[in-house]
Amino acid sequence: MRVAIFEEAGAAPALQEVEHTPLQDNEVLVRIAGVGICHTDLTGLNGNVPLPTPAVLGHEGAGVVEAIGADVEGLEAGDHVVLTFDTCGDCRACGAGHPAYCELFAPLNYFGTRLDGTTTMVQGDREVHGSWFGQSSWGTHAVASARNAVQVDRDAPLHLLGPLGCGLLTGAGTVLNVLRPQPGQSIGFWGMGTVGLAGLMAAKALDCENIVAVDLNDDRLALARELGATHTFNPSSTKDVVWEILEATGGLDSSMEAVGLGSVVREALGSLRSPGVCATVGLQTLENDITIDQGHLLIGRTLTGVIEGDADPHQLIPGLIRMWQDGQFPFDRLITEYPLEELATALEDFHAGKVIKPVLIPASSSY
């Protein structure tokens, strides 16, 4: 396996050879066809999530199953899969259909090891920490569990499907599973990255009437209009973005913010009619204090946090692919492809806001 290892927080990842450790009974080895870069990966790189190092990031992988553990059912070598977050499958939340709130979400996705403390990769006698969102897929291969490998049809563009495992799942799932706007209702989105635009496309597919997009980047606002936004606002070009949204729409039935800054949360909450619901999905750090006006809540507005779109990936990912096939979810318009060897350039472009969703393609990929 060739993977992108970073040695310590703030260090640039570099491609290096490693070996995967023996597959456990519930695990699969996947040859990566394409893997996205997500803002959550950046939190790992800069140390805002305390992942032990050396480590490998990447949690939007898609590829072909090459080997399976002894107890894996429903998957076999040659299957096409999208890798998503890992869950235990047994706790109360998982049993209730809310795997994103799995009681073991943190140790399965953030700790850098399997639950038994072993690593999925070694480099000689050195352990390399993987299991980032149950996969660590910045490389040619990834070890995942059968739980977080979602089988998909072979006629879908496998190398582009990885972002369905996190960023696209989060945005679209928040709209489809949590906010659930009805046809003719109004909805707003703050932050026109992958998550915000995915939510916007889902709202368009649900026939929302007024769809508001807010961002500081005029090019992204232009794309939002092409994808279904009826109103766009750049806060740097307005005196009071909340007032202008209220004036244009009469207030939003729901909103989603994908930035995570307190000022943005307040805008998304304040733009609601009463009653109305605002979902916050943006992540700055694990500890991120925000303040809101209690008056916004007392008049019937709700602020809720959402992880991974409150989605069951095994249901939603195939559903989003079907929406794409029907022309209702053109997520491929958000993607810019890079060879895996150009990871540094992809990270630089992503951090600078030049691209929305970079996807790394290993040289061995032919999908």
Results as ranks from 00 to 15, higher is better:
I307R: 15
G165S: 10
G276I: 06
F133I: 03
V56S: 04
A100H: 00
I299N: 15
N210G: 14
D86W: 00
P50H: 02
G162Q: 03
S131I: 10
L316M: 06
G167F: 03
L347E: 01
T249K: 06
A248G: 13
W132M: 10
T118I: 12
C278H: 11
G309I: 01
I37R: 00
V242C: 11
L104K: 15
I317Q: 07
A9M: 10
S131P: 09
M1G: 04
G260A: 10
G162I: 02
E247R: 15
F85T: 03
L23S: 09
L340S: 02
N210I: 14
Q182C: 13
C166S: 05
V242P: 00
V81Y: 02
A205M: 05
L160G: 02
D349H: 12
G251A: 14
W243P: 13
R92D: 15
G44A: 10
D155M: 03
M192D: 05
G167T: 06
L227A: 08
A172K: 00
Q284Y: 12
T230S: 13
L216K: 10
L160Y: 00
E7L: 05
A33C: 09
L160W: 05
T345E: 14
I335C: 02
L15T: 02
T118M: 12
S274W: 11
T280K: 12
L320K: 00
E127T: 06
L75R: 02
L252S: 12
G47S: 09
R31Q: 14
G36A: 04
L221I: 02
V281R: 11
A14F: 08
P181H: 04
L176W: 04
E209G: 13
P339V: 08
S254E: 03
E60Y: 05
A12Q: 15
G353S: 10
L169T: 03
G162V: 01
P183Y: 03
A202T: 06
A12L: 14
G69I: 10
V241R: 09
G95H: 08
I317T: 01
F350P: 05
V65A: 07
T230K: 04
E8H: 15
L261F: 07
E348D: 15
